[in-house]
Amino acid sequence: MLTCANCQYEFKYKEALPFSWKSRVGHQCPSCGETQYYTASSRKRSFNITIVAFIVIVFLNAVDVPFMWIVALAGIIIAAMILLSPFIYKLSNEEEPMW
């Protein structure tokens, strides 16, 4: 689960979920008020997962899997990435450069 890098407050799932669709925006810790950002390694991990999902979808399209199956799989992948993000990513006190 997401943990504040400043005070070690562990975010509740409902508090951590908005981080998954607002990764470039800092969020304040409810305990200490410090603004928290995804770490650069977390953003890279998210990018890598997205690239792998894209490659899988392109591969399925290349082997003539029905379009509706591909759309359903893409929806499942997106939903899984959003719902599991609070368990995968880490936070930092400052916004780190990506590279």
Rank of each mutant, 00 (worst) to 15 (best):
R45M: 13
K12V: 02
H27W: 07
S42A: 07
I57T: 06
E34F: 05
F19E: 11
V25Y: 06
V25C: 08
F67N: 07
I77C: 08
V71L: 15
V63E: 12
F87T: 01
E10A: 00
Y9Q: 01
K90E: 06
Y37E: 14
Y38T: 11
L60P: 04
S31F: 02
F19S: 10
A53D: 15
S31C: 08
V52G: 09
M1L: 01
V65N: 11
R45V: 10
Q8E: 05
V25W: 04
C7F: 00
W21M: 08
S92D: 05
C29P: 10
R43V: 07
F47A: 10
A79H: 15
V56G: 01
T3D: 02
A80E: 15
T39W: 00
P97K: 13
I78M: 11
L73W: 10
I77Y: 08
I77K: 10
P18N: 05
K44V: 06
L2N: 00
E10R: 03
L83C: 07
S31A: 04
I77A: 12
A40Y: 05
L2C: 00
Y9A: 02
A79C: 14
Q28A: 05
C32F: 09
L17W: 12
L17R: 10
A62P: 05
I49Y: 04
T35V: 07
P18W: 05
S85C: 11
A72Q: 12
K44A: 05
E94P: 09
P97H: 14
D64C: 09
S41C: 03
Y13G: 04
F87Y: 15
L91A: 06
T3V: 03
C32E: 12
K12P: 05
P66I: 10
I78D: 11
L84E: 02
P30L: 03
V58N: 03
A62T: 14
K22Q: 06
K44Y: 05
C29M: 04
T50A: 13
S42V: 03
Y38N: 14
W99I: 12
E10N: 01
S42N: 06
I82G: 15
K22T: 11
Y38D: 13
S20N: 14
L83S: 12
C4I: 03
Y38K: 13
L91D: 02
N6T: 00
F47L: 12
I82Y: 15
C4T: 02
F11T: 07
N6F: 00
A40H: 03
Q8S: 08
I51Y: 02
T39R: 01
S41W: 00
L17N: 09
A40E: 05
S42E: 07
I76T: 13
A53Q: 15
P86Y: 08
E15R: 03
L2I: 00
Y9E: 00
F67Q: 12
R43D: 08
L83M: 13
T3M: 01
I82M: 14
P30Q: 07
V65T: 15
S41E: 02
I55E: 09
G75Y: 08
V71Y: 11
A72D: 03
F11Q: 02
C29T: 12
K14H: 07
G26S: 11
I51C: 06
W99K: 06
Q8C: 03
S46D: 09
G33N: 06
L84I: 06
G33E: 03
W21L: 08
T35Q: 02
S41T: 03
C4D: 00
S92K: 04
K90L: 00
A74S: 11
P66Y: 04
